[in-house]
Amino acid sequence: MEVRTIKVFTTVDNINLHTQVVDMSMTYGQQFGPTYLDGADVTKIKPHNSHEGKTFYVLPNDDTLRVEAFEYYHTTDPSFLGRYMSALNHTKKWKYPQVNGLTSIKWADNNCYLATALLTLQQIELKFNPPALQDAYYRARAGEAANFCALILAYCNKTVGELGDVRETMSYLFQHANLDSCKRVLNVVCKTCGQQQTTLKGVEAVMYMGTLSYEQFKKGVQIPCTCGKQATKYLVQQESPFVMMSAPPAQYELKHGTFTCASEYTGNYQCGHYKHITSKETLYCIDGALLTKSSEYKGPITDVFYKENSYTTTIK
């Protein structure tokens, strides 16, 4: 009895394709271990004539594949690729409408935090270190965002349907971005203890939790000093293409032309909904596939993004 075979390709990165001759009487799992086709788990399936010449994702289970996976995804987590594939199996079914010149995501599976993050990423200057993220990001900007969303979920250790947080998501993504040249110098002034300067680099240099107003941050924000008295913390120097200011959701007025974009969060910790506000020729609110415009805006804002380049204080 002759062994019926077909020729397929296996890959971990969709760049390096490895030619395989597979036995049609055995499952993919018996031949390769966990195997995925377009995100779908085909591990328990036997090869079919229609699979001839198709590319299958496999887990990096030998040295060659491990090197290829690390170079593309910059992670050695053995569960990463499987999590990416199972997320992709959902995100490829989502709709990605162009809204006001940006790629958004039609609401499904509690994905409003991903839509808000995706919209924000198209408006701030950011370059990702893992080629996987950078490639998928370019495709997302062009309207094909399924891979990018699935990668975000995998890097953030999230599953489809789980509630997510924009600030946490951005923080994970910033860790995989090139923020080497970003720098922030802060000064804390206390009447009792004097003053202390701190220099922050990388992710810490672009994120701040405690106030939404970048102007206020430049002037000074009140913080408790270690001595128990009130101290003032203010920005001395900022070198970065953008800054992200966050605070627990509270009524906040966004003035046209003073910011790049913002995240609105309605609801409580267990259950809520994100919308995205962007400042173009007027203010726009993007909620999944829905767009509304207004000249002014007041609502429960939790993150505001500002364009920056270089700032030095005039406070002496």
Rank of each mutant, 00 (worst) to 15 (best):
residue 9 F to D: 08
residue 164 G to T: 00
residue 31 Q to V: 06
residue 204 E to K: 14
residue 216 Q to L: 07
residue 195 Q to C: 14
residue 56 F to L: 11
residue 99 V to I: 15
residue 268 N to A: 15
residue 153 L to Y: 15
residue 190 C to H: 00
residue 158 K to Y: 00
residue 101 G to R: 03
residue 284 Y to C: 15
residue 176 H to N: 08
residue 197 Q to G: 05
residue 105 I to M: 04
residue 143 G to D: 05
residue 17 L to F: 05
residue 37 L to D: 14
residue 198 T to L: 15
residue 71 E to K: 08
residue 163 L to K: 15
residue 221 V to W: 05
residue 81 L to D: 02
residue 231 A to V: 02
residue 86 S to G: 09
residue 180 D to M: 10
residue 149 C to N: 04
residue 233 K to T: 11
residue 84 Y to A: 05
residue 191 K to S: 14
residue 20 Q to D: 07
residue 291 L to V: 15
residue 281 E to I: 09
residue 267 G to I: 11
residue 234 Y to K: 11
residue 108 A to K: 08
residue 109 D to R: 03
residue 62 D to Q: 07
residue 40 A to E: 13
residue 264 E to H: 05
residue 75 T to C: 15
residue 149 C to L: 07
residue 8 V to H: 02
residue 21 V to R: 13
residue 295 S to D: 15
residue 101 G to S: 08
residue 235 L to V: 09
residue 311 Y to L: 08
residue 90 H to W: 09
residue 267 G to F: 14
residue 83 R to K: 11
residue 64 T to H: 11
residue 204 E to T: 07
residue 55 T to N: 13
residue 147 N to Y: 09
residue 256 H to K: 12
residue 221 V to K: 02
residue 188 V to N: 06
residue 312 T to Y: 10
residue 57 Y to D: 08
residue 34 P to A: 15
residue 158 K to D: 00
residue 164 G to V: 07
residue 111 N to Y: 05
residue 131 P to S: 04
residue 193 C to M: 06
residue 206 V to W: 02
residue 107 W to V: 06
residue 132 A to R: 06
residue 243 V to G: 00
residue 138 Y to T: 14
residue 113 Y to F: 10
residue 99 V to R: 09
residue 291 L to Q: 12
residue 4 R to K: 13
residue 156 C to D: 00
residue 169 T to F: 01
residue 41 D to R: 06
residue 310 S to T: 11
residue 75 T to W: 03
residue 193 C to K: 07
residue 22 V to N: 03
residue 57 Y to F: 12
residue 89 N to S: 13
residue 171 S to N: 13
residue 304 V to G: 02
residue 169 T to E: 02
residue 168 E to Y: 06
residue 142 A to F: 11
residue 58 V to P: 04
residue 248 P to H: 11
residue 64 T to D: 15
residue 213 S to P: 08
residue 128 F to L: 05
residue 141 R to C: 14
residue 163 L to N: 05
residue 292 T to D: 10
residue 154 A to W: 08
residue 262 A to W: 03
residue 186 L to G: 08
residue 100 N to C: 15
residue 51 H to F: 01
residue 269 Y to N: 15
residue 274 Y to K: 00
residue 47 P to R: 04
residue 241 P to G: 02
residue 205 A to Q: 01
residue 53 G to Q: 11
residue 307 K to T: 13
residue 300 P to K: 06
residue 205 A to H: 01
residue 64 T to Y: 10
residue 88 L to M: 05
residue 87 A to T: 06
residue 140 A to E: 10
residue 25 S to V: 11
residue 53 G to M: 13
residue 142 A to L: 11
residue 316 K to H: 15
residue 232 T to I: 13
residue 110 N to D: 03
residue 177 A to V: 07
residue 254 L to H: 03
residue 272 G to S: 00
residue 44 K to V: 14
residue 58 V to W: 08
residue 181 S to P: 05
residue 167 R to I: 03
residue 32 F to M: 13
residue 214 Y to S: 01
residue 289 A to L: 05
residue 219 K to C: 10
residue 11 T to P: 06
residue 220 G to W: 01
residue 187 N to I: 07
residue 80 F to I: 03
residue 197 Q to L: 08
residue 115 A to T: 14
residue 234 Y to P: 00
residue 8 V to A: 12
residue 187 N to R: 12
residue 278 T to Y: 13
residue 313 T to Y: 15
residue 262 A to R: 01
residue 159 T to E: 15
residue 246 S to R: 05
residue 27 T to N: 14
residue 34 P to L: 08
residue 135 D to V: 08
residue 268 N to L: 15
residue 315 I to D: 15
residue 292 T to K: 11
residue 229 K to V: 07
residue 152 I to F: 03
residue 167 R to G: 05
residue 221 V to Q: 03
residue 244 M to G: 03
residue 32 F to D: 06
residue 225 C to F: 00
residue 149 C to T: 08
residue 199 T to H: 10
residue 308 E to G: 05
residue 271 C to W: 06
residue 42 V to L: 13
residue 112 C to E: 01
residue 144 E to M: 10
residue 292 T to I: 06
residue 214 Y to A: 00
residue 2 E to N: 12
residue 23 D to E: 12
residue 273 H to M: 04
residue 249 P to G: 06
residue 103 T to G: 01
residue 292 T to L: 07
residue 257 G to K: 08
residue 300 P to A: 09
residue 86 S to L: 11
residue 315 I to W: 14
residue 45 I to Y: 12
residue 123 Q to V: 06
residue 252 Y to Q: 04
residue 278 T to L: 08
residue 112 C to K: 02
residue 212 L to T: 11
residue 107 W to G: 01
residue 117 A to R: 02
residue 103 T to Q: 05
residue 159 T to N: 12
residue 263 S to Y: 00
residue 7 K to Y: 08
residue 301 I to V: 10
residue 261 C to I: 09
residue 210 G to N: 00
residue 165 D to R: 04
residue 171 S to K: 15
residue 151 L to R: 04
residue 175 Q to W: 05
residue 169 T to S: 03
residue 261 C to Q: 03
residue 39 G to R: 03
residue 208 Y to R: 06
residue 239 E to G: 03
residue 31 Q to C: 11
residue 100 N to D: 09
residue 91 T to H: 06
residue 271 C to N: 10
residue 290 L to C: 12
residue 274 Y to R: 00
residue 127 K to T: 13
residue 163 L to Q: 01
residue 39 G to E: 10
residue 271 C to M: 15
residue 72 Y to E: 04
residue 32 F to R: 12
residue 273 H to D: 03
residue 78 P to E: 13
residue 46 K to C: 11
residue 112 C to Q: 01
residue 88 L to C: 02
residue 124 I to H: 06
residue 175 Q to K: 12
residue 2 E to L: 11
residue 188 V to K: 07
residue 50 S to K: 11
residue 197 Q to A: 10
residue 82 G to M: 15
residue 211 T to I: 08
residue 7 K to M: 15
residue 250 A to L: 07
residue 249 P to R: 05
residue 158 K to P: 02
residue 183 K to G: 07
residue 282 T to L: 09
residue 51 H to R: 05
residue 208 Y to F: 10
residue 137 Y to C: 07
residue 294 S to A: 14
residue 27 T to G: 07
residue 85 M to A: 04
residue 229 K to D: 15
residue 13 D to C: 02
residue 158 K to Q: 06
residue 29 G to P: 08
residue 152 I to K: 04
residue 300 P to L: 07
residue 239 E to V: 11
residue 102 L to S: 09
residue 101 G to I: 06
residue 290 L to F: 12
residue 263 S to H: 15
residue 126 L to C: 12
residue 94 W to F: 08
residue 126 L to Y: 00
residue 211 T to P: 03
residue 162 E to D: 14
residue 27 T to V: 11
residue 47 P to W: 04
residue 71 E to L: 06
residue 116 T to N: 09
residue 200 L to R: 05
residue 219 K to T: 10
residue 286 I to K: 03
residue 144 E to L: 06
residue 152 I to Y: 06
residue 306 Y to P: 02
residue 229 K to Q: 14
residue 155 Y to N: 07
residue 248 P to S: 05
residue 211 T to R: 00
residue 195 Q to V: 15
residue 105 I to A: 02
residue 109 D to M: 05
residue 196 Q to L: 09
residue 198 T to H: 13
residue 48 H to M: 14
residue 289 A to F: 04
residue 91 T to G: 01
residue 261 C to E: 08
residue 139 R to I: 04
residue 7 K to E: 11
residue 135 D to M: 10
residue 3 V to N: 13
residue 160 V to N: 09
residue 258 T to D: 12
residue 45 I to M: 12
residue 296 E to V: 13
residue 19 T to W: 08
residue 300 P to H: 12
residue 38 D to H: 10
residue 100 N to M: 12
residue 116 T to H: 08
residue 24 M to I: 13
residue 197 Q to K: 14
residue 210 G to D: 00
residue 268 N to D: 12
residue 251 Q to F: 14
residue 282 T to A: 13
residue 312 T to H: 09
residue 275 K to A: 15
residue 115 A to N: 10
residue 66 R to E: 02
residue 220 G to E: 03
residue 98 Q to C: 10
residue 151 L to E: 05
residue 42 V to R: 05
residue 174 F to M: 06
residue 188 V to S: 04
residue 65 L to E: 06
residue 135 D to L: 07
residue 275 K to C: 07
residue 89 N to G: 13
residue 196 Q to C: 10
residue 132 A to V: 01
residue 177 A to Q: 04
residue 99 V to Q: 00
residue 281 E to V: 02
residue 313 T to F: 15
residue 279 S to I: 05
residue 200 L to N: 02
residue 23 D to M: 11
residue 133 L to S: 02
residue 134 Q to G: 04
residue 46 K to A: 11
residue 74 H to F: 03
residue 267 G to S: 15
residue 308 E to Y: 03
residue 165 D to I: 00
residue 63 D to Q: 07
residue 287 D to Y: 00
residue 203 V to D: 04
residue 153 L to W: 10
residue 20 Q to I: 08
residue 3 V to H: 14
residue 116 T to I: 08
residue 173 L to S: 09
residue 118 L to R: 06
residue 266 T to P: 00
residue 113 Y to K: 04
residue 138 Y to P: 09
residue 202 G to W: 02
residue 2 E to Q: 11
residue 127 K to A: 10
residue 257 G to T: 02
residue 250 A to C: 14
residue 80 F to Q: 05
residue 92 K to T: 07
residue 87 A to F: 00
residue 239 E to M: 07
residue 20 Q to F: 07
residue 166 V to K: 03
residue 124 I to T: 07
residue 70 F to Q: 11
residue 62 D to P: 07
residue 222 Q to Y: 06
residue 285 C to R: 09
residue 249 P to E: 03
residue 223 I to M: 09
residue 278 T to F: 04
residue 144 E to R: 07
residue 294 S to W: 12
residue 92 K to M: 13
residue 241 P to N: 08
residue 158 K to T: 10
residue 117 A to P: 08
residue 26 M to Y: 08
residue 132 A to Y: 02
residue 303 D to Q: 00
residue 140 A to C: 11
residue 233 K to A: 12
residue 175 Q to Y: 12
residue 142 A to N: 13
residue 233 K to E: 11
residue 165 D to P: 02
residue 227 C to Q: 05
residue 283 L to M: 12
residue 246 S to K: 02
residue 64 T to N: 08
residue 290 L to R: 09
residue 269 Y to K: 15
residue 26 M to C: 14
residue 57 Y to S: 06
residue 56 F to T: 05
residue 181 S to M: 10
residue 109 D to C: 06
residue 187 N to F: 05
residue 28 Y to K: 06
residue 204 E to A: 11
residue 10 T to S: 07
residue 88 L to A: 00
residue 143 G to V: 02
residue 130 P to F: 01
residue 129 N to V: 08
residue 176 H to S: 04
